[in-house]
Amino acid sequence: MTPAPFAPLGTLPRETLARWLAQGRLGLRTGPFTFRIASKEAIVADNLRLLYAHHLVIDSPPFADFHVSLERPASPRRWLRPQVDFRLDGYSPFLSLPAPQAFALFEWGMNWCIASHAHQYLLLHAAVLARGDDAALLPAPPGAGKSTLCAYLAHRGWRLLSDELALIDPANGLVHGLARPVNLKNAAIDVIRDTLPEAVLNTPVPDTKKGTVAHLAPPASAVAEVDRPARLQWIVTPRYLAGSALHPARIPRPEAMAMLIDNAFNYDVLGATAFTALADLISRAPAIDLCYERFEEAREWFGALKA
């Protein structure tokens, strides 16, 4: 029997989505991966509907890379201040979190699944944006303003490949996209809401381990082109600095190499393959530390980048 084809999640009736999730039948495609998801949490269904409307889904996929669930633990916490567990094949890598954080936990769990298992790629903690087939890698420490700038540029001419995970094919250096929601934290949520009134954000969730978090839906065009890999041409470490004029500064290659190694999830797993892929990247792509305060100045600077 031929399985039903993938269809955009947003075309599913609400009841169908809830039923597929409750019965563990929902297959969600994001870039090169298929997640099979089980959850009875309404907040998960509602946020999937809001933030993954353009992603392709299927009923009971014949194959899935990751079988995940979000479910309440078998304890009194099921009812009293209910909590949820994220599980991959029944294994829970995280502590239980309050049920209102279920969708945030789902997003972090998806990141963990990929970062811990997809060793066919060199995996970096970085955002990736593309212009045509040329891509910029944005590695940065937490709180530097990476996701905020990524969200802005993804709505101002750049194609979002990923906010958190760069998937680099070590065989050819191409970077693959996921086009998943952008994770915004604390003050960045209102900044983006004010700056990008057209953007789709979910309801912020307070008191998580990262503070208040919200997720921004990827633009439909980014999802439509998610299977179009790009070639990394630039490495930019954005740093939001209040009161700062735009200030780009070249990072010496050995220093840039050290930074990328620090941001790699599986450098030790891939060994020489990872070293060669990163050194090749450093050899061809300039690494630039970019201090910025104003989005528009940063956008103009990115726009002037030459491959």
């Binding site: 010496p252 070293f275 050899s283």
Partner: peptide, 24 residues
């Protein structure tokens, strides 16, 4: 050893130990 040399330094990978060396 795998070596990359640039005008601002270099990187070496020791395949035996798995160590990476970044040089000025």
């Amino acid at each position: 050893l795998i070596e990359f040399a640039w005008d601002d330094g270099g990187a070496l990978y020791d395949c035996s130990s798995g160590d990476t060396h970044l040089l000025d």
